[in-house]
Amino acid sequence: MHTSFNPHSFLVTGASGFVGRALTQYLGAQAGTHVVCAARRHIPCTAPNMTFFQCNDALETQDWHTALNGVEVVIHLAARVHVMQDTAASPADEFRRINVQGSINVARQAADAGTRRFIFISSLKVNGEQTRPGHPFQANDAANPQDPYGISKHEAEQALLAIGRETGMEIVILRPPLIYGPGVRANFERLMRLVQRGVPLPFGAVHNVRSMVALENFVDLIALSTWHAQAPGKIFLVSDDHDVSIAQLLRMLAKGMKKYIWLIPIPPALIVALACLAGKSMDASRLLDSLQVDISETKRTLNWQPPYAMQEAINKTVTSFISKQ
């Protein structure tokens, strides 16, 4: 039977990343905490209760002994993420080396060091690449990863749960969809640039359904997972609990920018055909397919509600984006 506890000492791997930076700031702002920020490149520790730990590229052999001293909760963010143009000789082997073996290595050392809880940041890609309308992914769905990244995350999940059963260390797994917020890059940033330019966009007739999660909402759930009695041994899906089509998302971005947006109602099949001709079929899929999650189990089990409404979080994201122009 798991019980709630009040952890004060944390190790965050991948602390220099998009989520890691926000999470370490959040944890470091709590009274009485100590946060070890682990990353390959040096990051400034902005509070006296935060210390930096330099790690290397070989996560599967990294010695975590010093970083784990006295740590009650590990939050494992470090990973090889989805790569658009992968130059590795064997992408699958690279994903397994870092995401599977690297996760096993830090988890076994954490268990040996007496760490009580280990939170693994996985990915919705473990569930699959898309959903059918009206059939969102559920927390208890069978895994269906489609690419080496998703497969590696699923294999890591299974290995970590096994370590938890073997050692008694509490394992919590979180599977986020697309995460957005101040400083977001990649596709979300590209969408903001298109809206900012005011160019006509061909998505007026697209009625897909996509789930996303604001950075602040995700950090809030991670923090809750560090102490909640019902979290260990479970896999949680997460989102803003407000699903949108690509057209609705673009309108929300335009609203945040106080700009007019012109969405042309071009049939999705025609967009896909044109994208295929241009060699952009994967980009079209990310924009047009549905990818929806049902977080009712997360809300019920952890008594959690996303603290920030989607439009509010988008407004913050847009404001940050514009301020850096």
Rank of each mutant, 00 (worst) to 15 (best):
I271D: 08
A229R: 12
A223G: 01
V244M: 12
L253T: 09
V213N: 07
A214Q: 08
M212A: 03
L249F: 00
V238R: 02
R193V: 08
H207N: 15
A247P: 01
Q196K: 03
H228L: 10
I271K: 11
A269V: 12
G233Q: 03
I222L: 07
C276H: 06
A229S: 09
G256Q: 13
E216K: 15
A269L: 11
V195Y: 02
M252Y: 04
V206Y: 10
P267C: 03
H207Q: 15
S239Q: 06
V195E: 04
D241I: 02
L274Q: 11
L215A: 05
P265T: 13
S239F: 06
F203M: 03
P267L: 04
V195T: 08
A231V: 02
L201V: 06
A247Y: 01
L263V: 01
H242N: 13
I222M: 02
D220K: 07
I222S: 01
A229D: 03
H242G: 07
A269N: 14
V195A: 03
V272N: 12
A278Q: 15
A229K: 12
L274F: 09
V238M: 09
Q230W: 00
V219T: 15
I266T: 15
L194M: 14
D240S: 14
K234M: 07
L263P: 00
G204T: 12
R251K: 15
D241A: 04
V206C: 06
L237F: 05
C276E: 14
V272D: 15
L221M: 08
E216A: 15
V209H: 00
L274G: 13
L215D: 01
K258T: 12
K234A: 09
V195L: 05
V209W: 00
Q248E: 00
A229E: 05
V195I: 09
V219D: 13
A247N: 05
V213D: 04
V195W: 02
V199H: 14
C276K: 11
M252C: 08
L237N: 11
P265F: 13
L270C: 10
I222W: 00
L270P: 07
L215Y: 03
K258W: 01
F218P: 04
F218T: 09
D220M: 06
I261L: 12
P200M: 10
G279E: 05
A223W: 00
I235D: 08
S245T: 03
L253W: 02
A273W: 10
V199L: 14
Q230M: 00
K259P: 03
G279A: 03
A205P: 04
H228I: 12
P202M: 03
L194R: 07
I271V: 09
R197L: 14
A275T: 05
K258G: 07
L215T: 02
M212Y: 06
W262S: 10
G233E: 02
I264D: 01
K255R: 14
L224K: 06
V206P: 08
V238P: 04
I271M: 08
M252V: 08
